[in-house]
Computed example of a mutant assay.
Amino acid sequence: MPNKAKSVTIFDVAHHAGVSKSTVSLVLTHSNKVADKSKQKVLQAIEELGYVYNRDAAAMRSGRTNLVVVVIDDLTNPLMALLAKNIEQALSEAFFQAIIVSSNNSVERQTQLINNLKEYKVAAFIICPVENTCAQWLDNLTTAYPVISLMHEVAYSSAPCVLPDYTKASHLVTLQLINESPKNMLFIGDESLSAQALLSGFNSACQKHNITPEPAITCTKSTPLHAKQVFSNTLLNKPSIDAVVCANTVIAHGVLSAAPHLKNSIVSCLHIPDITEMQPRFTSANISTQELAKRSILVLQEQLQTHTAPVKTLVNVNLQIRETP
């Protein structure tokens, strides 16, 4: 056993545990490449010897810290706020420290935040990219840092992305609505980066049943009031519409307020949780923010350890059938 009068080193831990120095290093950096038996030996040796890992010194050697910047596009969105909470928890469990900031749906602010935070020698960036994010800018960032694009995929970017299966979400809710035998269906989308995938799922479900829907319309603002105005104007020209698939529950509430008679013929692709739980609740596809956070950290760890990661990781969604009172 080493002399406790001097500082315990990583070599002492390796000798005490009967493993190599590189194995101890992998355990200290929370690598998943170490067998459980070896990991337990190292952890036991650390405890018995009283070894303290100097993360600051390690950061100086590597040029990086254990800080991970999480850029959320809109923290006022309850779904994104919940996602931020779960990412922070998942990072903490993986021994990372999260810095959570909001770009407020601004490309300029998104760029400024990331440029400023580079000075802190961060380990990686997890970004919920805003609309009009430049693919080249994102790819340039990936050459210097591990980067994950979360919730949205930036077209033509090679950055790894983790996102819900939006196409499946809209496909499932549309099929559920088709079971009610509607005659004139409409899709109301938004201007999010997921809009095209949601529309694709809607169209595939309609094609499966040989249904020709009305041309899709778009809400430029994801608020109930705006959705109400948009759908009210649509009904003036298309009064025969008897079923509506909405991009999210916010739009669905606006549609319902414009056409209460369609209350049993409105579904939402994505359920957006809210503390007040707006009523009624629509049939929708539920997104697990915990699973999104978990998968993001797994992709991040793979990037840090192997410098490679899956280009796209789709997280499954589940249909939640609700009866509108």
Results as ranks from 00 to 15, higher is better:
residue 279 Q to M: 09
residue 75 L to N: 12
residue 122 V to K: 11
residue 46 I to H: 05
residue 68 V to E: 00
residue 86 N to K: 02
residue 8 V to R: 03
residue 236 L to C: 07
residue 153 E to F: 00
residue 128 C to F: 02
residue 182 P to C: 10
residue 153 E to M: 04
residue 69 V to D: 02
residue 89 Q to P: 00
residue 315 V to Y: 09
residue 129 P to D: 05
residue 299 V to N: 14
residue 67 L to M: 13
residue 98 A to D: 03
residue 268 S to D: 01
residue 277 E to C: 15
residue 1 M to C: 12
residue 161 C to R: 01
residue 316 N to R: 11
residue 226 H to V: 02
residue 245 V to I: 07
residue 172 L to N: 04
residue 156 Y to K: 03
residue 200 S to D: 05
residue 181 S to P: 03
residue 66 N to W: 03
residue 181 S to C: 10
residue 175 L to A: 07
residue 62 S to C: 06
residue 176 Q to D: 13
residue 203 N to I: 03
residue 273 P to T: 14
residue 125 F to M: 11
residue 67 L to N: 08
residue 285 A to F: 03
residue 321 I to V: 14
residue 280 P to L: 01
residue 225 L to C: 11
residue 13 V to F: 09
residue 231 F to K: 09
residue 320 Q to G: 12
residue 244 V to L: 08
residue 237 N to H: 14
residue 115 N to H: 09
residue 149 S to R: 02
residue 291 E to V: 15
residue 172 L to M: 10
residue 84 A to W: 06
residue 174 T to L: 13
residue 72 I to F: 10
residue 102 S to T: 10
residue 122 V to T: 12
residue 191 E to K: 14
residue 171 H to S: 14
residue 302 E to V: 11
residue 21 K to M: 10
residue 267 V to G: 06
residue 100 I to T: 06
residue 209 H to I: 07
residue 276 T to P: 07
residue 251 I to L: 03
residue 10 I to A: 12
residue 290 Q to H: 10
residue 159 A to Q: 05
residue 297 I to R: 12
residue 73 D to F: 08
residue 321 I to F: 13
residue 255 V to F: 05
residue 60 M to N: 15
residue 173 V to H: 00
residue 227 A to G: 04
residue 179 N to Q: 15
residue 139 D to L: 12
residue 247 A to F: 15
residue 295 R to P: 01
residue 105 N to V: 13
residue 66 N to L: 15
residue 149 S to N: 09
residue 9 T to V: 05
residue 251 I to P: 00
residue 261 H to K: 04
residue 212 T to G: 00
residue 292 L to T: 06
residue 123 A to T: 02
residue 190 D to H: 03
residue 262 L to H: 01
residue 107 V to C: 03
residue 26 L to Y: 08
residue 79 L to P: 15
residue 141 L to W: 00
residue 256 L to I: 06
residue 72 I to Y: 09
residue 112 Q to A: 13
residue 42 V to T: 06
residue 32 N to R: 01
residue 40 Q to S: 05
residue 250 V to D: 04
residue 208 K to I: 00
residue 195 A to V: 02
residue 67 L to W: 02
residue 64 R to E: 00
residue 236 L to D: 02
residue 239 P to L: 14
residue 13 V to W: 06
residue 220 T to I: 15
residue 251 I to A: 00
residue 256 L to V: 06
residue 38 S to T: 11
residue 250 V to Y: 04
residue 217 I to H: 06
residue 200 S to N: 07
residue 168 K to A: 03
residue 180 E to Q: 14
residue 180 E to H: 14
residue 314 L to I: 02
